[in-house]
Amino acid sequence: MSERASEPSILSERASEPSTVRGRGDVVIDGAYRSLPDEVSDRLLALCTALAAEVWTTRDRLRLVESALARSDVTLDIDGVRDTPEQLDAMRVDRDAFVARVLGPIAAPAPPPA
């Protein structure tokens, strides 16, 4: 469970329940409340919200890295960099966590009837 578990879900009125999808997502589809008129659109909104958060987080991290490199007068040929096997393994862990956060809203079991 992440530290974000205590944050209220954007879609659930039952914020006291765990806001995870199979223990990994930040957004849940677990109640009768609908932000949008239908379940498909609601899930898409949740997916887009999660994706936007991920994109912004990455952009902000990249901004910091580029800023630090510029101060150090370092240029980097990013396409020429090769990951080590250990780095690839770590990347896959991060990738799977990312995917679970973004796609979690559409994998959640259907909510019970209102």
Binding site: R22, I78, D79, V81, M91, R92, R95, D96, F98, V99, A100, L103, I106, A107, P109
Partner: peptide, 27 residues
């Protein structure tokens, strides 16, 4: 060899599809 961004996209698609199989199709 793919660029970094092309590699990252291929990694993402593999991860997204793996997730879909495990967490949606299998259930």
């Amino acid at each position: 060899r793919p660029t970094h961004d092309q590699s990252a996209r291929l990694d993402f698609f593999e991860g997204a599809r793996s997730f879909t199989y495990r967490e949606i199709v299998a259930p």
